[in-house]
């Protein structure tokens, strides 16, 4: 809840908003660049100090975070990157689970011993997804997670992550209407300055919805128009 809105460096970024995110479902937050989506996500993740007068449900320790960059560290191999969380907390890593998750995202046993520099962009993002799942948190925050990979890879990654993240509370920040319509149970569009969220209806059917569905394509066109208006 942000009764006063949020300003960063004296510039109002987010307007007055009261946002409740449904548990166990995927909420997509759409908006043009600079609309405050990432700020909102970082606020929820506890990466920004909560402004005075605002209340954000503290989620420390319950959040897994996946960003646009894969954020793999080059000094650890793939398995080491998947178990990075345990490494940072000084815990013993659950290697069996890490291997199972790598298999679930479609990577082989040989890939697990590779260095990140040896992987393609799509494979690196798969490792990032496995690392996010390895954290096993009820809330998953994704900040344009697939925007850096090519379109076919993005499509495959969306289907894969929808299956693997089912049942968790997901807040997905994206600027891709198709991605939001395929994956989300609820879509919010951030628009205006300072930005406020507005609800947008989602097509029928459970995610991941097929990209060829006519209803979904029509909704994508309408959403695109709406986002274009939000910019002007």
């Amino acid at each position: 809840m942000l009764p006063q809105g949020l300003a960063l460096g004296g510039v109002p970024v987010l307007g007055q908003l009261d946002l409740a995110i449904a548990g166990g479902a995927t909420t997509a937050l759409l908006g043009p660049s600079g609309s405050g989506k990432s700020t909102l996500l970082r606020l929820v993740a506890g990466l920004l100090p909560v402004p005075a007068g605002a209340s954000v449900t503290p989620l420390a320790g319950q959040v897994a975070y996946m960003a646009q960059q894969d954020l793999l560290v080059p000094w650890r191999d793939v398995l080491g990157n998947v178990t990075m969380g345990a490494h940072l907390r000084g815990q013993a890593p659950d290697l069996a689970r890490a291997r199972a998750l790598l298999a679930a995202v479609g990577l082989t046993e040989a890939d697990a011993r590779k260095q990140p520099a040896q992987l393609s962009g799509g494979m690196r993002q798969r490792v990032a997804l496995a690392r996010t799942l390895m954290e096993d948190r009820p809330v998953v925050l994704m900040d344009e997670p697939f925007s850096a990979v090519d379109a076919p890879t993005r499509h495959r990654m969306q289907s894969l992550s929808a299956g693997l993240l089912a049942g968790r509370t997901v807040l997905l920040v994206t600027h891709d209407p198709l991605e939001a319509l395929r994956l989300a149970d609820r879509i919010l569009v951030l628009g205006g300055s300072p930005a406020t969220p507005a609800e947008v209806p989602v097509p029928d059917g459970a995610p991941p919805r097929p990209a060829g569905d006519p209803a979904l394509l029509a909704a994508q066109a309408a959403l695109l128009e709406r986002l274009a208006e939000a910019v002007s």
Partner: peptide, 9 residues
């Protein structure tokens, strides 16, 4: 950011 959400000291 990632390290912070992972609960690293």
């Amino acid at each position: 950011d990632l390290a912070s959400t992972m609960g690293a000291s």
